[in-house]
Amino acid sequence: MFKYIAEKLLVLLRDGRKLMGILRSFDQFANVVLESASERVIVGDLYCDIPLGLYVIRGENVVLIGELDLEREELPPHMTRVSAEEIKRAQKAEKDATDLKGSMRKRMEFLDFD
């Protein structure tokens, strides 16, 4: 882990969030301090980096810490960067769609199909 210090990293959290930032500190529990942290929100082919500032992440929430290869393209070329407002709208639309699917399923449950 020492060689990751002062590098730009991607931290995957247990709730599926993706944080990026510069590693300033860590310990044996994988508690980490990220400077200039930002969250990368991806909805379909849209993405947005939302700046967060200095973050201390409790180790138990960490899934994976990845070293970002700055030489390579960070994301596939077909993905487009959008504003924070736009990604929030896309996120809400996606959530509404899954909620609707869930509620439809619930109402149809008596049919007992699978």
Binding site: M1, Y4, L10, R14, K18, A30, R40, I42, G59, E60, V62, V63, L64, I65, G66, E67, L68, D69, L70, R72, E73, E74, L75, P76, M79
Partner: peptide, 16 residues
């Protein structure tokens, strides 16, 4: 998982 595209080396927490 498009966000993993540029990750070459990684650390995985044992508990996950």
């Amino acid at each position: 998982y498009p966000h993993m595209l540029s990750v070459r080396n990684c650390f995985i927490r044992g508990s996950v």
